[in-house]
Design a protein around this nucleic acid. Structure first.
Lengths: 163, 163
DNA sequence: TATTTTGTTCGTATGGTTCCGAACCAAACA
DNA sequence: TGTTTGGTTCGGAACCATACGAACAAAATA
């Protein structure tokens, strides 16, 4: 057997480490669990385009358990891709960084909100204050408008080759 | 003194209560603390357009402390407005429901992300894998494009009177 | 079959958030 | 000035998410 061909542990200089931490905090604020956020940040900063489980554990200082669940969350939300190299057993992970992911989430969020608001309008009925109802209706109209337009923007961007 | 002219405690039928709970959970998932989320939901569903502190405490079943901090968070993020009625000491709260709040947050988020990504690109330098760098650059371009276009959409919506 | 590699899962511990009740405070009223 | 009203702040308890280490599992290797 080849004498432990361990991929060279990722080397980051201090500013790069700080960046991983910064984007980690940022992603946490937008809903990622801490371990997922750091993993994703590291994948974006690493000179290597893909890293192994081992690399992540060694570089981030998280335990294997944390890395394992962190990776699972990233996969569930389609943030990373994974592959194996021929002849190797371990898996390598790569950040998936499409422009759509943010927009799609935003649209899904708005769509769910829109449904809720409509239900709310119906439940308020006619006896309730009309001003709030009117505001709700305006919000619904705007959200519909926004969804259509965002779809158009995405299409335009795709068509443009990538800008 | 007028014999305790307490505003009639809000009356919600069960489907309305469920709706408040549903939108409460939804808002929680988007970052509101539970008490803020329920307060906001109740303000949207109540037949009265504005409610007092008292009303909120009595209807939601939260303690005064929770309502107090919940209101503070809503004020900080500009989700509610507050006023007093002449001759009364208590304050009345109303949900603020502009179309912009969601979009503005989204744009602010994207703007911050964009800054971070650019910093990241710079820190990766030229020795790092170019594919990831290219993805990052494409993301930055898209985010800029998106921000400009969203600004345009908002302007168009405003101009249209409200759709 | 024994051993190493590559992870996953489980039980426990810990940290952070949010709640409640109580104490507190400021304004109005008496 | 004493009391009521309206609301904030504090201390402790409860809860939830997440981390860690250890045990476990599956696949390759020997």
């Amino acid at each position: 057997m080849v004498p432990n061909q361990t991929s060279p542990t990722v080397k980051l200089d201090p500013p790069q480490q700080e960046w991983v931490e910064a984007i980690g905090l940022f992603l946490e604020r937008s809903g990622f669990p801490p371990s997922s956020a750091r993993i994703y940040g590291l994948l974006l900063m690493s000179a290597e385009p893909e890293l192994s489980f081992e690399d992540l554990v060694a570089t981030l200082g998280f335990g294997k358990a944390a890395v394992s669940t962190g990776l699972r969350r990233l996969q569930e939300t389609n943030r990373i891709s994974e592959r194996t190299r021929p002849g190797e057993r371990r898996r390598y992970f790569r950040a998936r960084l499409g422009p759509d992911i943010g927009v799609d989430r935003f649209r899904a969020f708005n769509s769910a909100l829109c449904d809720l608001l409509e239900k709310g309008i119906a439940l308020r009925g006619s006896r309730a204050d009309t001003e709030i109802t009117a505001d709700l209706e305006a919000s619904v109209r705007f959200l519909r408008f926004l969804d259509v337009e965002l779809g158009g923007l995405q299409a335009r961007w795709e068509a443009n080759g990538d800008g």
